[in-house]
Nucleic acid binder design. Structure first.
Lengths: 337, 337
DNA sequence: GTGAAAGCGCTAACAA
DNA sequence: TTGTTAGCGCTTTCAC
């Protein structure tokens, strides 16, 4: 911690602490030469104004928080990269928290932020539970919140995400066009927004093509990779789908491994497409068809919106959603036989 | 921001602010009933003590920073996950910064931390430049620093990394044992520690097996993917290596793409092994042989050491290095013909 | 253009 | 066990 204070600096320079203080704020009028002298001395002594004293006076932390459910895939690392980039360009600092998709963790993290630690929060919902009152705490403290990728329906705020309904519809339609009759949908979690919206797109494509939805082909998964893998195996063996649409990358990866273990070939016996931000899908065996969200852009967009809110708060009476275009990349995993 | 203060709470309860303050600290003796009453009221009013006032008094931020050069691969996301986990278990918050492998960015970030914002710093060096005096600023402010994965030689501190020399030696030896005679080494950057150490391991394996080092087979790369790709193409075409040892994943990925474009088969014409934390190397075509660092463990280890330093500072007079064991996973990309 | 002084919200000696 | 009080280091009116 910085031992030297503004008073020390003032003394060594024969000035008052208010003058020294002014040298570090842009606004106040001060003799340019004095300012220069002060800044030079500060540099020499390695002094910079104590953050906590400034924040206590100014009631501003110049810090935002990112809360994400997991760190498993490239989507979140790209999104964080975008957020951090914008934040730093605005002179803001970025705190990072991982909830492990656990709403209790989410609540405890959120509670630790309401004491002025942050000026705003970017969050991708953990997806669990029905009680999201912890977020109300932020609202009460006038801390703006922006959701990205995953949200809660029961909460009015800004939400930045991909055009998941349409991408899902097109992904599913692509499987149909390539000959699939029994397409299974692997849900990340029925309670998270992305689970539902992506399922709606899936169902729309089915009904558009006169295919009835078979609930046995919809697999709701959990937070445990082993459990999911067994469930996928059961699905493949019992329901014999000829196409899989996975709402997240890790479920598609599990599917590839299980299919291989069970001697099913992709795409001959089973076609596969999923949401993923992986940048080496072309090198997989088979190359993987994906819906690729603009993760980096999404992070930047969400951050920019947060800073807009910080500059000029807007009261939201219902959820305001911004959709960013995802790209569909069709490769061998979904290829027609 | 929190409008309500400790004084407001005290007034509504007919107590003094010191009593209220005590209710939020664990140590001080206070009537359990009073404490309960205070905490209940605080909960009701959504009050929590202002962080900046506490920090200003206590000269402690309960915040650490992670500074990383890039966010491109799984290594860093896993390491961050480990760090954040430990930090939160200690009641600490974690700031994240990305330097984009640029030492100027690194310096400006570091400077913004020396004002008491953080109690400690975890850093993976950007790798550029010869002047690392910005880090001295942290030392002057008694902010402990722990390096992980990438360090600077000219700086005394704790450094947590993998047993890169030995892993590199074994990886290279593995290529030799599988018949390679002309093994190229792709360096991330000659100036970063990992570039050098991994090269030393490579050279050791060569000399152990009576193979002379051919400097034309050592390719120093830059921060630009396109430039690197062209350089790799040139290397493959002109030097005709029969094995590649890549010090980082992205160089191996570029190699796979270039090889494919030039009609070279892996592993028949060219064997490949690299450092990588990717968890789907088995699904690549061909499955990729890797040196896998314990990224999550490394993050936890580095964080734990930082907290040890925070609890009881130790003056380091030279670099203290902790090596964590990496695992070698041999798959098809390096298989004998 | 510069200085004096009050106070941001909290903590911790000290007193009661 | 609780209250009083003096700051933590800085910003910002208000004088000069």
């Amino acid at each position: 911690m910085s031992q030297i204070t503004i008073v020390d600096l003032a003394e060594t320079l024969g000035l008052s602490k208010s003058t020294v203080s002014r040298a570090f704020r842009d606004s106040s009028d001060i003799n340019p030469k004095t300012k220069e002298r002060i800044l030079a001395k500060a540099e020499e002594l390695g002094f910079s104004p104590n953050l906590y004293a400034s924040s206590l006076k100014g009631n501003k932390s110049y810090t935002i928080a990112i809360i994400i459910p997991e760190f498993g895939n490239k989507f979140f690392s790209q999104a964080i990269k975008g957020i951090e980039l914008i934040a730093r360009s605005k002179g803001y600092h970025t705190l990072i928290y991982v909830t492990d998709s656990n709403v209790q963790n989410e609540a405890s993290i959120v509670r630790s932020l309401a004491n002025g630690r942050v000026d705003g929060v970017l969050i991708s919902a953990s997806g669990e539970g029905r009680d999201h009152s912890h977020l109300q705490l932020l609202v009460d403290h006038h801390i703006p919140i922006v959701f990205f990728d995953r949200t809660y329906d029961d909460f009015n705020s800004h939400f930045v995400t991909g055009n998941d309904f349409e991408s899902s519809r097109r992904a599913t339609e692509h499987l149909i066009e390539n000959g699939c009759k029994r397409i299974a949908y692997l849900v990340i979690n029925q309670n998270v927004s992305i689970g539902k919206v992506r399922m709606d797109g899936y169902k729309k494509a089915l009904s558009d093509h006169g295919i009835a939805t078979d609930e046995r082909l919809v697999l709701d998964t959990e937070n445990d990779a082993d459990v999911n893998r067994d469930a996928i195996r059961k699905l493949l063996l019992e329901q014999k789908p000829d196409g899989i649409f996975a709402s997240v990358e890790r479920l598609a990866i599990s599917t590839m491994r299980v299919a291989s273990e069970e001697g099913m070939r992709i795409p001959e016996d089973l076609k596969l497409i999923c949401f993923s931000c992986l940048d080496i899908t072309d090198l997989l065996q088979p190359s993987l068809s994906v819906v690729k969200q603009p993760a980096f852009e999404m992070g930047k967009h969400a951050a920019n919106f947060l800073f807009q809110q910080l500059a000029k708060p807007i009261e939201l009476t219902n959820q305001l959603t911004t959709l960013l275009e995802s790209s569909l990349i069709f490769q061998n995993s979904s290829k027609k036989n």
